[in-house]
Design a protein around this nucleic acid. Structure first.
Ligand code: MN
Ligand code: MN
Ligand code: MN
Ligand code: MN
Lengths: 219, 219
DNA sequence: ATTAATATTTAGTTTAGTCTAAAAAAAATA
DNA sequence: TATTTTTTTTAGACTAAACTAAATATTAAT
């Protein structure tokens, strides 16, 4: 049985080993966890002891199959709770993450099974992230950062890469959300900003940073 | 801000100061918390520091007004979650307590406000216990242990005094629950057991222990 | 009012998780 | 290759919450 601190480390290791590939460095993990490399060194020894990661000194850490399963279980709970908060309790998508960080650590298989049923077995959370099933399988929808598209390309927004409240509120104000149709009208070399047309309606300019964090599917 | 361990101590102190009146002894608290008197001694110093209890050495501990408010807030959350689990997730009344023990420590004012709305501002939990409002006010329904009634008396079951799974499952099997009409047919001096008629229908015998834990309202 | 029994507190450890400072290894650079 | 820089680990301390054993205070009993 993992403590909730251990669960959080494992989640971070899982996320980092997706982006950065395989081994996760002590420093990267320390940054992600907002703690010190010394603390991380201690913790990965514990996690290694529990065989949820494998670890050789100075070689970074690799998540194990067991670890991956556990991480995905916590992520499943996190995302199901986010759906619950939005669908049933009328939270906005920028209000759910903090609360889900707490709820994801509740231990009760029955609770999650019933919550999943209650929500109608949702496949995606409010930010467009896929919800792993009880076996850890997830259907990753095609997703590409908006700033990778060229002028004339268009796609449907499927997710955000940044779930910070400030970014999500900005999108709300611009009336951009999951499902919006986005077409690239112009690309400004100078600063990487883009002119886009949303839902064949309004045209607006978004910064390079914004474009990087909007994920779209091109069909 | 209290840790979840401190919240549990405070809840226990609150409960004990209702039954046993005012001061709570170190030993009673240790037993309730399933820990040692030494640990309790340490903890009540901490709670006293945070002014949620008042405490003079060897004199037991008294909950403060602040402490009472905090305890009732945790109890409010516990009971609202129990209602949610039964009403929305189809848990049985004997399955909810353990999970609610975890959920009651989630910190989010918005969550509780919305949950309360979602549930339609329930006044009682699945065990018949009153749910404090956001200010800590609660409407204690009239409740009296069944074994205090005399032959011929009757009342409506309003709550249980023991929320253990085994007791609740027994009641389910006997088809006795909150709202059942119970009439005392006979009282056996020898062991304190009772013959009762439930809902003017079936007659059955319950032990003294069972009778103590069924709470009824006489009108 | 002493003495005995019980309740409570203190002292000293333990474990989980964190930190800073220092040592050691690995990687980068000259 | 030798040196410098960066990364990682170790050492030593700290806090929260627990425990056992010992000391002390309170209460009960003679
Ligand atoms: Mn989230
Ligand atoms: Mn999400
Ligand atoms: Mn309960
Ligand atoms: Mn209850």
């Amino acid at each position: 049985m993992l403590s909730f601190v251990e669960e959080n480390y494992l989640k971070a290791i899982y996320h980092l080993s997706l982006n950065g590939k395989q081994e996760v460095s002590t420093n990267a993990l320390a940054e992600e966890m907002r703690t010190t490399p010394a603390s991380v060194s201690d913790m990965i020894k514990k996690l290694s002891q529990k065989s949820v990661v494998s670890y050789k000194k100075y070689q970074g850490v690799n998540i194990s199959e067991d670890g991956r399963r556990l991480a995905l279980h916590v992520i499943r709970k996190h995302r199901l709770w986010e759906v619950f908060l939005v669908e049933k309790l009328n939270f906005t998508w920028d209000q759910v993450h903090e609360v889900a960080e707490q709820l994801e650590h509740i231990k009760s298989p029955l609770l999650i099974q019933r919550l999943d049923e209650f929500l109608g077995h949702p496949k995606y959370d409010p930010h467009g992230d896929p919800i792993p099933d009880e076996h850890g399988n997830l259907i990753e929808k095609h997703r590409q950062p908006l700033d990778a598209l060229s002028i004339g390309d268009q796609g449907v927004m499927t997710a955000v890469d940044d779930s910070s409240s400030s970014f999500l509120k900005y999108l709300d104000k611009m009336e951009i959300g999951i499902g919006s149709n986005i077409k690239v009208i112009d690309f400004i070399e100078f600063d990487g900003s883009m002119d886009i047309k949303v839902d064949d309606d309004k045209t607006l300019t978004v910064s390079s940073t914004v474009a990087q964090n909007i994920l779209v599917a091109i069909d």
